[in-house]
């Protein structure tokens, strides 16, 4: 009943490792988009322009309260109706980047709001420009408390990449599925995908924690 075939597992390993690279690329690119776009969304909610703040706020809420897989479908299949014809990769990166940007913007917002009011006042007292206030004083202090959340979403985006298989991005899940259909065997490919995810997620989470400590020390926030 439970017949694991090692030779089959070794035979498909190279293909799965190749797909792992795609998964990592998807997660990395999606995360890079989310990191930058998330900051833009967070800062946009702090401008004195009420309308902009409200629109961004609602947009973030909307993205956070609908499923990622729906957003991936939407960008890929509904986009062309608006003349937006995208490759699976591009559509996938936009959807997953936007989705996680919404979550990260909340993490950034929390980090920024955790910076004591006195820091803003000290910036005003020194006549620092708004730009210097953010880049030199506020964001460096908002970062350490935000790092834990940012790390969680890095692992989260990695684990969500299989959803890209629904539009045919050749990441791990998609490849495992293809192998399974070709050979009528799913046990090995799917199990191996699980192991690969585990072997990347666990060290990544540990690395994120190390990085967090390193940043705090670098910024002189640890005695």
């Amino acid at each position: 009943m439970f017949d694991w075939k090692w030779d089959f597992a070794f035979e498909i390993l190279p293909r799965l490792l190749g797909a792992t690279l795609n998964t990592l690329m998807a997660a990395g690119a999606g995360y890079a988009i989310a990191l930058v776009l998330g900051l833009v969304l967070a800062l946009a909610q702090r401008t004195p322009v009420r309308l902009l703040t409200a629109v961004v706020r609602e947009g973030v809420e909307f993205i956070r309260s609908t499923p990622l897989v729906l957003q991936i479908f939407f960008v890929f299949y509904v986009g062309p109706q608006f003349g937006l014809r995208l490759s699976p990769w591009t559509a996938g990166m936009i959807a997953i980047g936007l989705h996680y940007a919404a979550y990260l913007s909340e993490v950034y917002r929390g980090g920024i709001e955790a910076v004591p009011k006195g820091q803003w006042e000290a910036c005003t007292a020194l006549s620092l420009s708004t730009r210097d206030t953010y880049t030199r004083i506020i964001i460096p202090q908002a970062l350490p408390p935000a790092l834990a959340g940012m790390g969680n979403y890095l692992v989260g985006i990695f684990k969500d990449t299989p959803m890209l298989s629904v539009i045919g991005v050749a990441e791990l899940m998609h490849t495992a599925n293809a192998i399974g259909s070709e050979h009528y065997r799913f046990l090995e490919p799917i199990t191996m995908v699980g192991v690969i995810f585990l072997m990347i997620s666990l060290p990544a989470a540990a690395l994120v924690r190390l990085f967090e400590t390193w940043v705090r020390r670098k910024l002189g926030m640890i005695r």
Partner: peptide
């Protein structure tokens, strides 16, 4: 306000900068 300096009850030093860095920030950036 560049002509005015202010000190606060709770100091409000920038925690991620050294004493020297704190004192150089305004002169360099502003």
């Amino acid at each position: 306000r560049e002509q005015i300096g202010m000190c606060f009850q709770h100091f409000n030093l920038f925690p991620h900068m050294t004493a020297l860095g704190n004192c150089m920030e305004g002169p360099v950036q502003v």
